[in-house]
Design a binder for these strands. Sequence first.
DNA 1: TCAACAGTTTAGAATTATTATAATATAGTT
DNA 2: AACTATATTATAATAATTCTAAACTGTTGA
Lengths: 142, 142
Amino acid sequence: MLKNTEFTEKLRSSGLRPTKQRLKICEVLFNREKTFHFTINDLVKNISNQLNEKISLATVYNTVHAFKKKGYLKEISINSDKSYFDTNISNHHHFFDEDTNELIDCNDDSIETPNVKKNITGKKINSIEVLIKVATDNQNHN
Amino acid sequence: MLKNTEFTEKLRSSGLRPTKQRLKICEVLFNREKTFHFTINDLVKNISNQLNEKISLATVYNTVHAFKKKGYLKEISINSDKSYFDTNISNHHHFFDEDTNELIDCNDDSIETPNVKKNITGKKINSIEVLIKVATDNQNHN
DNA sequence: TCAACAGTTTAGAATTATTATAATATAGTT
DNA sequence: AACTATATTATAATAATTCTAAACTGTTGA
Ligand SMILES: [Mn+2]
Ligand SMILES: [Mn+2]
Ligand SMILES: [Zn+2]
Ligand SMILES: [Zn+2]
């Protein structure tokens, strides 16, 4: 549970001005026990629920992208409809529940990061991510 | 190299009427030595290049989704901008070159499908896919 | 053979996530 | 306080995708 002044410091130290919009978004995103996944729309709803003031949609996009660039968020693409963001910035993998559209972190005891035996020449590996799609086992034969 | 009559049979056997649009799309997608990845826009361009007639965008979308539903194509989400489709329907993994936005199949000697040690209760695993993002190793410190 | 009908194609409109614009406001600095 | 770079905002623009509803076509069975 970071305080407001700590967010201020964190933002300033990464070259982002601690505006009241950014501080509020920090509260919503990082004042939590557990990490979580969200869409921009989820975040906009959370902001108007948990806080009195409104933050413009453009600012929410700007801030999320700024936080991603600074490494405070990760972006996850499951389908082309919308982007998911993750406050868990550690290297980890995901289950995606196709029934509920829910994204769930894999623990280390669920799966291990696979070993890349041959990489593409001249390229650096930026990330290795496993996505496990699951659904209820109802045998649909359409 | 399948012939037109073979595509006709394939379509009919999966409950899709072999219209001339679908047969043309089959030619463009499946009359190849190697599998490949494409976007809807790529496919539309290929159609107007390789063939005389034009197929409406709505039909291209309809057909690609129908083929995906029948298991003749796979959809891959790398970023939220657009969907990629894959004529390689086998279980395999991908490199994504962030410099060129190119999607490249992993061979079995590049990576092995990771083992899922614990699945979510009551759910069936539909797919396990690894995505390796690579880029040129130029040390950008912005 | 051919009428009937379900399935398909199509142009264009609608939807939706995201990005761009450009005017206004604010934070940090002197 | 004044200055300047940054940030916010409402709104417009963009772009991928889906929807609509009218016209067309493949299949079937009388
Ligand atoms: Mn889709
Ligand atoms: Mn994006
Ligand atoms: Zn996660
Ligand atoms: Zn592939």
